[in-house]
Amino acid sequence: MKIVLDLAQVLLIVLCAPLVRGIIARGKALLQRRQGASIWRPYAELIKLFRKEELVPPTSSAIFRAAPAVLFGATVCAAAFIPVLHASALMASRGDFFLLVYLLALARFFLSLGALDGGSAFGGMGASREALVSSLAEAPFLLGLAAVAILAHRAELAGIVAWTLEQNVFDISAVHMLALTSLAMVTLAETGRMPVDNPTTHLELTMIHEGMVLEYSGPSLALVEWSAGIKLHLMLALLVALFFPWGMASPNSSWGMAAALLLYFAKLAVLMALVSVIESAMAKLRMYLVPDFLGVASAVSALAVIFTVLVKR
């Protein structure tokens, strides 16, 4: 039973990923008083891309074709770490948050290599900028997670979530607020959203992620886009699991499960609305202001770690 539930959680994150992107895009459209596309459009786009033929630059190597698959594999594996409906997941009781973060790094490493294999200037530009953003985002990401893990006395995500569930909602400490702040900033940077990257731009001065995937087409592009969606969904789900897990059910009651599913979508909807508002309200930061943004996130996460000493007793 538990294994079925765990697999269902992974499928939930993977299969609902395009929907999350669709809803955010629709939310932005509403805020900008446009009609916007249907929230199901990302699915149609994926299906279309999977059916199309793939164009490959003649100068590229096997890495160019392997990179999207590795990216997808590592991202799906990372999705298996996130507890969604109950305080466990396929890998959550075995693997810890360091493994989760480094799986995302594995995915990014191969995407950057694929970008450089295209042989054009845009791939290199995107990879170079991604290298800057991701190398600076890793420290606040791990420190923010470490702060919560120190409070919970365990490093496995399942353990952290189980510990948080036992706490009272009103006992939220400064550590949690600081960690949430830094992880939310990291989420925006890691998933290439405003104000770090603009997911809708194709202007060479500003693009990061879009620059990297410019040479991809057909099924490869579908895998890349789907992975980006999964990453966005899993980061939001991670925030929910770490900071707002209340409502998760025990695996035995099917009614509890249904309630947990509804509650999860409600929490996710709030986060998606927030992302839409941020994307509509903020301008993209200048490239060299991004390190400052991540520097603030690093400082906040370091404070979170320091404050654990005061909170723990």
Binding site: E54, V56, A66, A69, V70, F72, V76, L103
Partner: peptide, 21 residues
Amino acid sequence: IILGVVVIAVLPKRTQRMVAT
């Protein structure tokens, strides 16, 4: 898990065409 997903991702037959960037 990673290898399994990678195999599933590359298994479907694709048509590819060499085109200069």
